[in-house]
Amino acid sequence: SPQLSSEIENLMSQGYSYQDIQKALVIAQNNIEMAKNILREFVSIS
């Protein structure tokens, strides 16, 4: 969805990798808010 694409772009601009974002979305069943929480908790931005 376009909204999801812009959310993904936004997260990538914050330093998350596309791969990590995709993984979080799978775990969160495409719930972007939950995916963000997963990324915040489990992915360290280098």
Rank of each mutant, 00 (worst) to 15 (best):
E7N: 08
I45R: 14
L39R: 03
S6Y: 05
Q3I: 09
A24K: 03
R40T: 12
Q19L: 06
Q22W: 00
S17C: 02
E7T: 10
K23Y: 06
S46T: 12
V26P: 01
Q22E: 03
S46Y: 00
Q3V: 09
Q19P: 08
P2G: 14
K36C: 00
N37V: 08
L25W: 00
L11S: 03
L11H: 01
R40P: 15
L11T: 01
I45M: 13
I38M: 10
I32A: 09
A28P: 02
I27N: 15
S5D: 11
I45H: 15
I32T: 11
I45E: 15
S17P: 10
N30Y: 00
N10C: 11
S5Q: 08
L4V: 12
S17D: 10
E9P: 02
A28K: 07
S17Q: 14
V43A: 13
S6M: 10
E33R: 09
E41I: 04
N31F: 00
L39V: 06
N10S: 12
P2W: 06
I27A: 14
Q3D: 14
F42D: 15
L25G: 02
S5F: 09
A28H: 01
S44E: 14
Y18D: 12
S13T: 08
I8F: 08
I38G: 07
E33W: 04
S13N: 13
E7W: 03
Y16D: 02
L4H: 06
N10F: 14
R40W: 02
L4E: 05
F42W: 15
I8C: 05
K36S: 09
Y16Q: 00
L39M: 04
S6C: 13
S44N: 14
Q14D: 14
P2Y: 07
I8P: 00
Q19C: 10
V26L: 11
S13C: 14
A24H: 01
Q14N: 07
S17Y: 00
I27F: 13
E41D: 10
Y16T: 03
A24M: 03
L11K: 01
Q29W: 01
E41R: 11
Q3G: 09
N37Y: 08
A35V: 02
F42L: 15
L25H: 05
L11R: 02
S1C: 08
Q14P: 01
E33V: 09
Q14Y: 06
S46C: 04
V43T: 15
V43H: 15
S44R: 09
L11Q: 00
N30C: 00
A35L: 03
E41P: 03
P2V: 07
S5T: 12
S46D: 14
S46V: 08
N37T: 12
D20Q: 13
S13V: 13
I38T: 13
S46A: 08
Q19M: 06
M12L: 12
P2I: 07
N31L: 00
S13M: 06
N30F: 06
M12A: 07
L39G: 05
K36G: 09
E7S: 10
N30I: 00
Q3W: 05
R40E: 12
Y18H: 04
F42T: 15
Q3E: 06
S17A: 08
Q14K: 10
S17F: 04
Q19Y: 05
Q3T: 09
I38A: 09
S6T: 11
I21G: 01
S46H: 02
Q29D: 15
S46F: 01
N10M: 07
S1Y: 04
L11M: 08
K23S: 12
Q22L: 15
Y16G: 00
V43D: 15
I32W: 03
R40M: 06
F42E: 15
P2R: 09
Y18W: 10
F42R: 15
K36I: 04
Q22A: 02
L39W: 02
Q29E: 13
I38C: 13
Y16R: 00
E9V: 07
A35Y: 00
F42G: 08
